[in-house]
Nucleic acid binder design. Sequence first.
DNA 1: TATTGTTATACTCTATAACTATA
DNA 2: TATAGTTATAGAGTATAACAATA
Lengths: 161, 161
Amino acid sequence: MRNAQPRSARPPAPSTEVAHQLSRVFFDLVMRQTGWFRSASADCGLSPFQAKTLLHMDAKRPSTMSEVAQTAACEPSNLTGIIDKLEARGLVRRRPTTDDRRIKMVSLTPEGAALRGRLVARFSEPAPWMRALSARDQRQLRDILRKALAFERSAGTSSEN
Amino acid sequence: MRNAQPRSARPPAPSTEVAHQLSRVFFDLVMRQTGWFRSASADCGLSPFQAKTLLHMDAKRPSTMSEVAQTAACEPSNLTGIIDKLEARGLVRRRPTTDDRRIKMVSLTPEGAALRGRLVARFSEPAPWMRALSARDQRQLRDILRKALAFERSAGTSSEN
DNA sequence: TATTGTTATACTCTATAACTATA
DNA sequence: TATAGTTATAGAGTATAACAATA
């Protein structure tokens, strides 16, 4: 864990040692944020998975159940129950399509879109450790994470796998 | 969300706008890593919470149930069940103390410490987006996250709250 | 009387398989 | 026969309250 890198023939990848250190510190930090997500969801009256689902829905465009399940990285069978609850609360709406009657489109109601907005705002409130960083570190971190997110959005279909 | 900052009298904090942008991009990225954590745990034959608990245990020193519950940010009642399972698999050991017989110390067995090591190694494997970053970005990101983690460890008792 | 850990309970999350209604 | 979504079910995670043993 503290050894130099073996010098075997490799593509010109950046030092794997730095990447490993990065991985450890990232997941160490992430592991400390689970409670944050939970309480932020609860502040909006939602379970974590309900909040996650709402966040993964496109505020402007309806999606099929499958699409939502894929972007939220969950099983379609579980999504059914979540959408049931969100629909019962008037936050989303399910409608069949005319051309293929197996497919159902889900969309946010105005109430759902509003609550989704509240969620986004809530998740925009910086955690204490973010405010503790210098302005320079905050900018650098934001910019690097934006690159990472751009990669994730292009490369992976979602997170999973 | 794209507006300039209001110019009201404020402490000389770094731009809250940058911090908000940082918060959004960070949690957007984090939301995509849950599957990664899940599959990494499964690779070691553990549920996510079991893995989390093992990772939060000090490999060298026994802790009380309360201490583990606090660092893992879970309810003591839930920890009981998890420790039961880990103990049944021979990964941890529970022992009463002599001075206060209410307290029970939990420690990793050699098998538990070995599996914890495998877990740490597994979580050290960089995610694709980490490898996609330039060597410079990787170093900068690692260094900033280390500062964040140092803050978390000093300031917060854990994550929660 | 307060505290450590446990039990009981209930609800949510996750995953798999079987089912329905379409195609 | 294959696909979109649902139902059924089981196991794991999370939270609260009540409890036993001990201090």
